[in-house]
Write a protein that binds this DNA or RNA. Structure first.
Length: 159
DNA sequence: GCCAACGTTGGC
DNA sequence: GCCAACGTTGGC
């Protein structure tokens, strides 16, 4: 099982939007970056865990957890002429873009802000914190995952 | 294949 | 709204 971080602008799609989706599941579509596309298409597997990151907002940071429930498949929004993600160069035969389905696991009591992440020397080698990194999907090392869940005060929901 | 121009991302 | 960093585009 692998760990990932996925960025979303909460004004467009927040962790609460995911929680409120049917079956708390939604496609992670609209990614239009080749490096991120390759991870969606080739690497992300059902059961992988995801840090849901809020970007371009008042307090950017990790807002909660999700998991992959469907591995990479062609992103249908690329075929919709009315979609902001439409790409005429993506065909049914040769899809250019891919997406996965993610399901809500939990929301952190408080967002773990980017500023706090930057304050942790142990996290300094996270791609997220590297200057100029603009990837919207990136892998997370297990020890980084543990540190962030600890910062969030996260305890798995009991049943 | 180079590289300038342009567009996008995303923190601040 | 600004701007740095980076990716993409397209002329040559």
């Amino acid at each position: 099982m692998a760990y990932w971080l996925m960025k979303s602008e909460p004004d467009a799609f927040s962790i609460d939007d995911l929680a409120g989706s049917p079956d708390a599941t939604a496609p992670w579509d609209g990614v239009r970056n080749y490096q991120a596309r390759n991870m969606l298409r080739d690497q992300m597997q059902v059961g992988d865990q995801v840090l849901f990151y809020h970007s371009s907002c008042a307090v950017p940071g990790v807002a909660g957890l999700a998991e992959i429930v469907r591995s990479g498949y062609p992103d249908p929004t690329a075929w919709l002429p009315d979609s902001p993600y439409y790409d005429p160069k993506s065909s049914q035969d040769k899809p250019r873009w891919y997406c996965v389905d993610v399901r809500f696991i939990g929301r952190f009591e408080k967002v773990v802000p980017l500023s706090i992440l930057r304050g942790q020397p142990e996290l300094s080698d996270m791609p997220l914190l590297r200057p100029g990194n603009r990837l919207s999907v990136m892998p997370v090392e297990p020890h980084h995952w543990m540190i962030i869940l600890h910062l969030a005060g996260w305890t798995a929901p009991s049943h």
